[in-house]
């Protein structure tokens, strides 16, 4: 990963006098101070919201309404209260089911498509690719009305997360696109060598390509997991009518509705919803950043 090794030594010209060297060093120090001051200010902008949210989450109901920054007394019990909210555990279970199963299905269904788009030659390939990109860019609201009618009237599956999970078994455009971009970078000699060894295409994909594409698969899995975890529109449409099917993102809003100005509890719940993705990030930092880079730079 190039990102981590980015310090670039500033080389002064060797023929300068000592006075000039001193001036250059002073300039370098000033530059260092200036740049790092800006960085600290930026870091405050990015981190202070987390700090305030955390501090508020351990305040008393009353203090959370005062605009105070520091808690008078640390009410850790707020977290317990949130955890014991009826339904909260269910929201966790549903979110994990949606995100876990959704991610798994996405990978299984998208990888072969991406492989075909990257490594097979066939008529209409560019057309198919353009269709994938169009699907990727399509706002979910465009198709939601007929899809809702379909899930509600034909299959009677509304009030559950299945209308969100099942489509993931049929390829996800963004994941297909991302995987294809990565598979393009694998030299075709690998594929050809495998074919000469008598591997079928499926075996080539699983035995040769998949191990090489592991970083891309990891990135796609993370993105999809995040997408499901963060999804609000989907559960709002399909699951809102059945509290037993709510996810964390949807439930959090109703939690706020039920607790109104108990901002301490709402902030504790907010942090609990944020925590898993942030923890996941620290475990999978590299795959993450590579994945984001893949969306923009490759191709």
């Amino acid at each position: 990963m190039t990102v981590t090794t980015m310090t670039r030594p500033t080389t002064a010209s060797p023929s300068t006098t000592t006075a000039a060297a001193g001036a250059a060093r002073r300039r370098a120090v000033l530059h260092w101070v200036a740049v790092h001051s800006v960085a600290v200010a930026a870091a405050l902008f990015f981190l202070l919201p987390f700090v305030f949210v955390f501090l508020t989450s351990v305040m008393s109901d009353r203090q959370a309404l005062t605009g105070d920054l520091w808690p008078h007394q640390w009410q850790w019990g707020n977290y317990l209260k949130v955890w014991q909210t009826p339904g909260f555990l269910g929201w966790w279970r549903n979110t994990l089911l949606y995100a876990g199963l959704g991610t798994l299905l996405t990978i299984v269904s998208s990888l072969p498509v991406a492989y075909a788009l990257a490594k097979f030659r066939f008529r209409g390939r560019n057309l198919a690719l353009m269709a994938v990109i169009s699907m990727m860019m399509l706002p979910p609201q465009v198709t939601v009305i007929p899809m809702y009618l379909f899930w509600a009237k034909q299959l009677h599956l509304t009030g559950s997360l299945w209308p969100l999970i099942i489509p993931m078994a049929f390829g996800d455009a963004f994941s297909i696109f991302l995987l294809r971009q990565f598979l393009l970078t694998i030299p075709k000699e690998y594929v050809e060598a495998a074919r000469i060894d008598g591997c079928g295409e499926l075996r080539t994909l699983l035995r040769v390509i998949l191990p090489m594409a592991r970083p891309a698969v990891a990135a796609v899995a993370l993105f999809q997991f995040f997408y499901c975890w963060n999804d609000y529109f989907g559960p709002q449409i399909y699951a809102s009518e059945n509290e037993g099917a709510w996810t964390l993102s949807y439930g959090l809003e109703s939690f706020k509705g039920a607790h109104h100005t108990d901002w301490n509890l709402t902030m504790a719940a907010t942090l609990l919803v944020m925590a898993p993705v942030i923890v996941l990030f620290f475990f999978a930092q590299k795959a993450f950043i590579e994945g984001v880079t893949l969306t923009g730079v490759k191709g």
């Binding site: 809702y148 509600a152 009237k153 009677h156 599956l157 509304t158 009030g159 809102s240 009518e241 059945n242």
Partner: peptide, 11 residues
């Protein structure tokens, strides 16, 4: 409730 009634599912 209206959405659920119009959908008319088992729940």
């Amino acid at each position: 409730s209206e959405q659920a009634l119009r959908a008319g599912g088992p729940d």
